[in-house]
C-alpha cells in the first residue's frame, strides 16, 4: 500500500472520529453509571431497538463471561427496553430518536461512547442477538483471554458470525424472556463459508451460512458479511468502519495468520432467527433504516410467502465451542 492510500485511510479514520464526536449531541442520558467503571474492566457496547425479550438472557450471558459494565444506546425503543436497562446496576444507557441509518447504523453513537469511556479498556461491541463464544469459554472467563492477548501484544480478537436457526419455521415456538435462545435455534451451517481478502483494509471478507444458502443463492455477492472483530483493546484513536466488520488503523484487521499457522479466534452465535423474526423483518423493511436499503430484510420478506425454514439435512446441531473448533470455524491458535 502506498503512502497516498495510507494517508487517505487516515483521513477517513479522522472523519469517522469527527462524526462520532459530533453525534454526542444526539444522545441523551438515561442512566450514567460510568463512574463505577474500574481501571481494567471489560466493557460491552451495544445499540438496540425494541429488544425487550432478549435482554435478560443477554445481560446474564455476558455477566457470567466477565463483562463488568454495559453501555447501551437505545434507538427510540417503544417496548420499555430502556427503562428495564436503566434499572440494572452495571448498565449505563443513552437514548436517541435520531436516524440509525444516518448515524452509520449506530456506529457513530457507539464510536462516541468508546472515545469517551473505552480508552485503554478491552471493549466488546456486539448486537443484542450476538453471543460470543471463544476457546475455553466454558472454563475461562473473558479476562483470562484478554490478559493472554495482552501478554502477546495482540490488540484485536476476531469472531465470525454464526447464524443459528431452528428446525422448521422460525416462528413455530415463541421465544420467552430469559430463555436460552439456542434451545430452539440450535442448528448451524458447518462448512459453506467463503473468505476473500479485502486489499484495501486488510481484513477478510467472509460470506456464506444459511443466509447465503437460502436468501442469496441467486445473488451471492450481496450476501451479508460474517467477519467481525468485536473485541478490541480500545484506543480513542481507533474507529470501526462499516459495523464491526473492520477497523482503522488497518493493522487491527490482521487477525488471521498468512503463513500457514492459526491464530486464536471465536464465534458470535447469532440468535436472529427466533419467533419474532418475521415481524421484525417486516418492520425493518418499512423503516428502511438498515444496510443497503434493507436489502437483507427485503430478501427475507420475499421469501416470507412460504414459511421460512433454514434447516437442511446437513445442518449441524450446536454442542459447545470444542465442536466449532474441530469443525474449523474458530481456532485455539497458540492458546492452550
Amino acid at each position: 500500500m502506498g503512502y497516498w492510500q495510507g494517508y487517505r485511510l487516515r483521513l477517513r479514520r479522522r472523519r469517522i472520529l469527527w462524526r462520532s464526536f459530533r453525534s454526542r449531541h444526539a444522545l441523551s442520558v438515561v442512566a450514567d453509571r460510568t463512574r463505577t467503571i474500574g481501571k481494567s474492566d471489560i466493557l460491552l457496547f451495544a445499540t438496540l431497538r425494541n429488544e425487550g425479550p432478549r435482554l435478560p438472557w443477554f445481560l446474564d450471558y455476558y455477566r457470567k463471561l466477565g463483562v463488568r459494565h454495559f453501555l447501551f444506546v437505545d434507538n427510540a425503543s417503544t417496548d420499555g427496553s430502556d427503562s428495564y436497562l436503566a434499572a440494572q446496576p452495571d448498565v449505563s444507557i443513552w437514548r436517541t430518536e435520531a436516524s440509525y441509518r444516518a448515524a452509520r447504523f449506530g456506529m457513530d453513537w457507539i464510536g462516541w461512547l468508546q472515545i469517551r469511556h473505552g480508552h485503554g479498556h478491552w471493549c466488546l461491541v456486539v448486537d443484542v442477538d450476538e453471543f460470543l463464544v471463544y476457546p475455553f469459554c466454558d472454563t475461562r472467563p473473558l479476562p483470562a483471554l484478554t490478559e493472554w492477548l495482552d501478554m502477546g501484544g495482540i490488540r484485536s480478537f476476531p469472531a465470525m458470525i454464526l447464524d443459528m436457526y431452528p428446525k422448521g419455521p422460525v416462528d413455530a415456538h415463541p421465544y420467552l424472556p430469559g430463555q436460552d435462545p439456542f434451545e430452539q435455534a440450535c442448528w448451524f451451517d458447518a462448512g459453506n463459508y467463503t473468505a476473500r481478502r479485502n486489499e484495501r483494509f486488510g481484513n477478510l471478507w467472509i460470506q456464506g451460512g444459511p443466509r447465503a444458502r437460502v436468501f442469496f443463492s441467486d445473488a451471492p455477492d450481496r450476501a451479508p458479511a460474517l467477519n467481525k472483530i468485536p473485541l478490541v483493546k480500545w484506543n480513542r484513536r481507533y474507529s470501526y468502519v462499516g459495523s464491526t466488520h473492520m477497523l482503522l488503523p488497518r493493522g487491527l484487521n490482521l487477525v488471521y495468520e498468512e503463513w500457514g499457522g492459526e491464530r486464536s479466534s471465536g464465534c458470535l452465535l447469532h440468535a436472529k432467527f427466533l419467533s419474532d423474526f418475521p415481524a421484525k423483518a417486516e418492520e425493518e423493511m418499512r423503516r428502511r433504516e438498515h444496510y443497503h436499503d434493507s436489502i437483507e430484510y427485503r430478501a427475507y420478506a420475499d421469501r416470507a410467502a412460504g414459511p421460512t425454514d433454514l434447516w437442511c439435512v446437513w445442518s449441524e446441531r450446536y454442542l459447545n465451542w470444542r465442536q466449532l473448533e474441530i469443525l474449523g470455524l474458530m481456532s485455539k491458535g497458540g492458546w492452550t
Binding site: A195, E258, G261, E262, R263, S265
Partner: peptide
Amino acid sequence: AVERRLRGRAGLYMQSRFPRLDH
C-alpha cells in the same frame, strides 16, 4: 499448541487462518 499456531490444520481456510498462495 505450538504446532497449531505455527503450521495449523492442513486444508483449512477460515477467519484466523488464511494462508497466502503456496504457504
